[in-house]
């Protein structure tokens, strides 16, 4: 290796290191801060440990407001698992149908679904709120669950994947064996499509778990709220008074709520890449 090559190699490494500090330092601050007492947050080096109070903080998070944090985590799990499971199944069925059946209006249907991916989601939240309050769905689990069951991106992904990976011969073979159309989908196509299903589930799970706007509009009752809405509610109750929530509780609660997602990301990296690649070849 020449001097120039090794020099540029070190330069590249230096640039990457500095950038990774920018991306990692705030998360490091969050982790360090979740181990501090409320008083220690305001003094000393923000990026280094003080008195270790992580367990006390965690205990306080789960004790605050009668242990409502458990409820929030459970709600988030319910919305994310329920919404993602249903949306994955119906997106798989719709995507498979759009890929494997020829019918009038097929391209129109698919293009409408694609266009919907580009509609800014927050614009739908307010009219949905008004529509749902008209039918008394506001402040129920359904208010968040129902809209979460629709994933246009999932349909797009399922169609691409079904089109390229479910062979027509396999479907024909199923027909010759006398299997019904739905049975062919459920027993043959779904199995072939399973990697795409994991990707769709993952994207929708994360979209629901991190959603803030829809639930904050729909759910005034804090026992129904997901963890994102709950924490922001705590953060807003700053200052003095009996209902004020100290900073250390908000910070620790925020850190805990990110754990499920970080685990999902790290353990299922392969499926993330799959979804992003599908997006980039559009």
């Amino acid at each position: 290796m020449t001097v120039r090559q090794s020099l540029s190699r070190w330069l590249v490494l230096g640039v990457l290191l500095v950038t990774s500090v920018y991306f990692l330092a705030p998360v490091w601050w969050l982790l360090v801060s979740s181990t501090k007492t409320n008083a220690d947050l305001f003094s000393g080096n923000g990026f280094w440990f003080a008195r270790f109070a992580l367990f006390d903080n965690v205990h306080q998070v789960f004790a605050q407001q009668g242990g409502i944090y458990w409820q929030w985590l459970a709600n988030s799990a319910l919305y994310a698992v329920g919404g993602a499971a249903v949306s994955t199944l119906i997106a798989a069925l719709a995507g498979y149908t759009l890929a494997k059946y020829r019918f009038r209006g097929r391209e129109f249907t698919f293009n409408s679904v694609l266009a919907a991916v580009l509609v800014p989601q927050p614009l739908l939240a307010v009219p949905l709120y008004l529509m749902f309050s008209g039918v008394h769905l506001v402040n129920t689990y359904w208010a968040v669950l129902l809209p979460s069951m629709v994933s246009p991106f999932g349909v797009y992904l399922a169609r691409i994947y079904a089109g390229s990976s479910v062979p027509d011969e396999l479907i024909e073979a199923g027909r010759i064996d006398g299997a019904g159309e739905f049975r062919i989908f459920a027993t043959i196509a779904l199995r072939v499509m399973s990697p795409a299903l994991v990707t769709i589930f993952l994207f929708q799970f994360v979209a629901i778990w991190t959603n803030y706007l829809l639930p904050v509009l729909m759910l005034a009752n804090d026992r129904l709220q997901p963890v994102t809405v709950g924490i922001v509610g705590w953060q807003a109750q700053r200052g003095i008074g009996p209902s004020a929530v100290p900073f250390n509780i908000v910070i620790t609660a925020a850190a805990i709520s990110a754990i499920p997602l970080v685990i999902l990301f790290l353990s299922l990296q392969r499926f993330w890449r799959a979804g992003l690649v599908a997006g980039s070849t559009k």
Binding site: T19, S20, F23, L24, P26, V27, W29, L30, S33, W209, T210, Y212, T228, I231, V232, Q235, F247, V250, I251, A254, A255, S257, A258, L261, V262, L264, F265, L266
Partner: peptide, 19 residues
């Protein structure tokens, strides 16, 4: 390292940065 911020819920990232 570069992808980690995306793995945090947007609300958690925003609360973190607000502090």
């Amino acid at each position: 390292a570069f992808f980690l911020p995306y793995a945090l819920p947007g609300v958690v990232g925003a609360i973190m940065w607000s502090y």
